[in-house]
Design a binder for these strands. Sequence first.
DNA 1: ATCCCTTTGTGAACGTATGCACAAAGTGAG
DNA 2: CTCACTTTGTGCATACGTTCACAAAGGGAT
Lengths: 235, 235
Amino acid sequence: MIRRLPQSRDRGIPEATVARLPLYLRALTGMAERGVATVSSEDLALAAGVNSAKLRKDLSHLGSYGTRGVGYDVEYLIYQISRELGLTQDWAVAIVGIGNLGRALANYGGFVSRGFRVAALFDANPEVVGDHIAGLNVEHIDELEAVIERRGVSIVVIATPAAAAQQICDRVIAVGVTSILNFAPTVLSVPEGVDVRKVDLSIELQILAFHEQRKGDRESGGPVMAEGLQQGASA
Amino acid sequence: MIRRLPQSRDRGIPEATVARLPLYLRALTGMAERGVATVSSEDLALAAGVNSAKLRKDLSHLGSYGTRGVGYDVEYLIYQISRELGLTQDWAVAIVGIGNLGRALANYGGFVSRGFRVAALFDANPEVVGDHIAGLNVEHIDELEAVIERRGVSIVVIATPAAAAQQICDRVIAVGVTSILNFAPTVLSVPEGVDVRKVDLSIELQILAFHEQRKGDRESGGPVMAEGLQQGASA
DNA sequence: ATCCCTTTGTGAACGTATGCACAAAGTGAG
DNA sequence: CTCACTTTGTGCATACGTTCACAAAGGGAT
């Protein structure tokens, strides 16, 4: 079973806060680019889509980096959050499974800009092995262990079919990987000390469908009325 | 700012429970395929990666569908969860932004199998418009409103660059869409009554990096020992 | 130097989620 | 029918997360 992420209280930063720090970081980066020097919790919260009390409490877990009456220094806060998240280091990421999704991930720009470097791509299909994607050669899955160790990969992204995921997971854990991002629609079982995060596209849609159905219940028809769509409750 | 999903207590099903129902559904589907007729909360919990008390409490929110001393009837539970999630209906989904990710989503098999039907694809790039992907023509973004209404799309997936996301969001809301799955790395602001779910690949990696860093703190070296190829902090 | 204004950081109240532990409810053997 | 066994459904204690509301702290004007 997927373990709870450990160390949530290593130095007292709650898991919920950690999950929001990247959000703040993104908002701050945008502000820095627009030349904003300081920002209040109110404004930053607005930009990040949370309320200001939550933002302040979150930041207070990192330390006292604000100035009362003024706000937070944008550059300084970017540095502090980056450091806390470990983004001042360079993380080598491997992507396993170069299907549509794997390809999309390999080309995704959001990684590089945040301390992540796609360092290796793997696939089992001989037709794909050898392809050049995002400046990298696709390696055969047989090379998995050797290449991971050689290139110091510490985070592995699994984008294989569900049936292959557990096996890949076991293999990378065997060579010391302890952080896995899983896109395969399956539950990975991992030993204590290994972190798995799961992204499941169909689950997100199902949650939306649940709420969408509830809206429909109170109004006219269900979702399948096509043409005569009412414009629904946006208020 | 992104609104809290409403209706979390519509009929008393907590949001945390709703988020796990798709997990149970997947585990159950696998069991049904393997011919399993009934399952205990213990076994189902194991397959879904949660503990059994939580599973039972979750299911109890839907009703009393188990039999004490026996367990749950797999087929019946599949039906009940599907109904609760609204998957017994047919949901028309549109994908906006046919880049690498949009393409991957259009081809993703996990949708169709669960009541979702990709009904339209949109892109702004004339070179992409007209392409045939997953049996669909890519439409020009100018057709967004017309096609959404014509085909009864009720859920929109945004896979555009961040800069375009808010505009697309506003436009689909204007024609009555109230459920949006956002892959663009930006905060969407929507009116009350519209549900936005966000999937952000780089945020997941950042959370992993945080925990990975914590592990490293207590052990030997940091992540970047590799072949000596780190180029230092990107922040 | 004093006063007023702004904004942070946080104590306290509230709400939600988790997990234990057990009574209630069912099965099946004898 | 009774008894022993299994497994659900849930009350309760605890942990976690959110929000309010305000004292403490700093800035700047006079």
